[in-house]
């Protein structure tokens, strides 16, 4: 098991939420605004302290770690993609991608890391933007750069909070395709999304309402050409749940 959440509670936002996530799984969390989706994601990533419950990443109990230990865990074993594409304004795209890798492994030369970053950038189709400032690229390009950054330390799990939320339709499709590729390569993804088209690409969907899991839909791995049927199925399921 990659991630195990057991009776996770946070004040009045989350109420004894429990679920598991298998290795290499792509899991989406959906729900109305204020249902606690992002809170669940950030707790699972060890960015906040729950008021109750436990979380494990493989054999490591995140809830039992100190802040510094959790930071180390995030740096080495987790990756993050935010809706707002947060990056350091003082660094160019390449340096932003390198940032967590430089911090995680001081022994590796910067040249080596740069080579790895450039390889990732090529893979995600943003090669040539290395020296650009973050204000000099499009939203889609910036989000792909964020994905590159999250993949630099080869995380076991990638947390994505509305990764396509701030993007136009074509950019969103590009970013989603990249996330699927990453998942196919073996990285588990826990994603929060409002977008049905994004969620239907995941292996499984959890529906959260008022801080409780109200439904679960297992879709299995996405097979090319089945997107439309999956989307219809998810839409029906969501309607049943009162979406």
């Amino acid at each position: 098991m990659l991630l195990r959440v057991e009776k996770l509670s946070k004040d009045s936002i989350l109420h004894e939420v429990s679920f598991e996530m298998a290795e290499g799984e792509m899991l989406a969390v959906m729900g109305p605004s204020g249902s606690g989706k992002s809170t669940l994601l950030y707790h699972a990533a060890g960015m906040d302290c729950p008021s109750g419950g436990k979380i494990w990443l493989k054999d490591t109990e995140i809830t039992g770690l100190t802040e510094d230990e959790k930071a180390k865990l995030r740096l080495h074993r987790m990756g993050f993609v935010f809706q707002q594409m947060n990056m350091m304004a003082n660094l160019n795209i390449l340096d932003n991608i390198l940032l967590p890798a430089v911090w995680a492994d001081r022994k590796r030369s910067e040249a080596e890391l740069t080579e790895k970053a450039e390889r990732l950038m090529r893979k995600l189709g943003i090669s040539g933007l290395e020296k650009r400032r973050i204000t000099q690229v499009s939203g889609g390009q910036l989000q792909r750069a964020c994905i590159c950054r999250s993949m630099m330390n080869e995380p076991q799990i990638l947390f994505a909070d509305e990764p396509t939320g701030a993007l136009n339709q074509s950019a969103a499709a590009e970013v989603l395709a990249e996330l699927i590729k990453i998942n196919r390569a073996g990285t588990g993804i826990l994603m929060v999304s409002h977008d049905c088209r994004v969620a239907c690409c995941c292996d499984r969907i959890l529906y959260l309402s008022d801080g409780r899991i109200c439904g679960e839909l297992a879709l299995g791995k996405l097979v090319q050409g089945t997107e439309r049927q999956r989307e219809e199925r998810v839409n029906r399921w969501l309607t049943e749940l009162g979406w």
């Binding site: 930071a71 180390k72 995030r74 740096l75 993050f80 947060n86 990056m87 350091m88 967590p100 911090w103």
Partner: peptide, 16 residues
């Protein structure tokens, strides 16, 4: 502040 938050989220601790 947001950049600091991002660094923390990425796993760069207070010391870093």
């Amino acid at each position: 502040k947001r950049e600091v938050g991002m660094l923390k989220a990425l796993g760069i601790g207070n010391t870093g």
